[in-house]
Computed example of a mutant assay.
Amino acid sequence: MEAVGENPYESRADISEASTKEVSVYGTNNDVADFFDEVDEIKKIVRRYDQNIDTIESLHKQALSEISGEQETYTREQIGSLANETSALSQSLKDRIKSLQSRSTRDSTKKTQAENLKRQFMNAIQRYQTVEATFRQKYREQAERQFRIVRPEATDAEVKAAIEDVQGEQIFSQALRTSNRRGEAQTALSEVQTRHREIQKIEQTMAELAQLFHDMELLVAEQEAPVQHVEKHTEQVQVDVEQGMGHTSKAVVFARAARKKKWWCLLICLIIIILAVCIPVGIWASNNNKKD
């Protein structure tokens, strides 16, 4: 006996085909779910990246106002540790966004999500660059003030040499020997040396950020190239189809014209045949009538 609700006419092949379709649908859904899970994870990392920038900015402000040497040293260590962590995050973000873009070239919704994440990350990079540039200038200004404690009459070129140039420490040491306030001068030297190191670290970070931003721009170009190739290929296919349709239309027109010509030729042939038959018959009938 057949089970209640069972279709006795449903073949095993139909059941197998339905099962295959179901697996295919679930596979597609899983791919979409994995994609958007990755989007959520990248968003979390971008938020953490932004939070690190906020913390680095706060620590820079704190370092500029520290009085105790121990506190300042601890703050600088925090800045260095957080900068290293942020650098690692940036590399992870670059790789994951690149992977995400490669998975979204044929889906407009996915492509929009990937582009939004890329734009958010590049905005964060630019904000980090702005923060570092701002505090590089502030560290420089503070170092200049410290140097002028020892050399109030120093020219701008001498101040710049003391803060940036390779021979800066030597210039500062010479200033120490000629200064009447050696205690203040020694403190100033320590401050300038510290700020010099901070400026160097900031400049290194800014160089890395510039390279990172450049890499993201190249990443966009790399992803656009295959898309443009696909679009160009699609446009060419469309042109070929339109040309093919044009040729087909012309062929139809030519075929119709040929058929019309054929019918006209057939009609002319019939008229000629009719005339060829009717004229002799008419002449023969006319001759007989004359004899009668």
Score class of each variant (00 low, 15 high):
120 Q>D: 14
77 E>W: 02
259 R>P: 08
65 S>L: 14
136 R>I: 07
120 Q>M: 14
19 S>V: 11
163 I>P: 05
100 L>R: 06
135 F>L: 02
279 I>M: 02
127 R>I: 06
29 N>W: 06
15 I>Q: 05
162 A>M: 07
89 L>Q: 15
254 F>I: 12
128 Y>R: 13
98 K>I: 03
20 T>W: 07
122 M>T: 12
123 N>K: 12
116 N>T: 09
275 L>C: 03
31 D>M: 12
109 T>H: 09
12 R>P: 01
223 Q>A: 13
7 N>D: 05
80 G>M: 09
184 E>Y: 06
73 T>D: 08
160 K>F: 02
63 A>S: 14
103 R>C: 13
147 F>N: 00
183 G>M: 10
287 N>A: 05
97 I>Y: 02
19 S>R: 13
62 Q>R: 15
195 R>P: 09
112 T>G: 01
12 R>I: 09
3 A>T: 04
157 A>E: 02
100 L>E: 04
210 A>S: 14
117 L>R: 10
205 T>D: 07
33 A>I: 15
69 G>M: 15
9 Y>M: 09
70 E>V: 15
162 A>C: 11
230 V>H: 10
17 E>Y: 06
128 Y>W: 08
63 A>I: 07
41 E>R: 15
218 L>N: 03
5 G>P: 08
2 E>N: 09
252 V>D: 01
184 E>D: 06
273 I>V: 08
63 A>E: 03
141 E>S: 01
46 V>S: 08
62 Q>M: 12
220 V>R: 00
129 Q>P: 07
140 R>T: 04
129 Q>L: 09
283 I>R: 08
36 F>D: 14
197 R>V: 07
168 G>H: 02
210 A>K: 10
120 Q>C: 10
231 E>I: 11
1 M>F: 00
157 A>G: 02
17 E>V: 09
65 S>E: 01
35 F>Q: 11
263 W>N: 13
191 E>S: 13
49 Y>T: 15
101 Q>M: 12
65 S>T: 14
119 R>I: 06
94 K>Y: 10
121 F>L: 12
132 E>P: 01
50 D>P: 11
147 F>S: 02
254 F>A: 10
256 R>A: 09
77 E>F: 05
145 R>T: 02
249 S>R: 03
132 E>M: 05
38 E>F: 10
278 C>Q: 04
55 T>Y: 03
173 S>Y: 07
101 Q>K: 12
278 C>S: 01
232 K>V: 11
216 M>Q: 08
80 G>Y: 00
85 E>P: 03
36 F>Q: 14
171 I>W: 03
209 L>G: 05
91 Q>I: 14
107 D>Q: 11
73 T>G: 12
172 F>M: 10
273 I>L: 04
82 L>S: 09
203 E>P: 10
163 I>E: 03
47 R>I: 03
208 E>H: 15
3 A>C: 00
18 A>Q: 01
25 V>E: 00
192 V>M: 11
206 M>G: 12
274 I>P: 04
146 Q>K: 03
116 N>Q: 13
280 P>K: 04
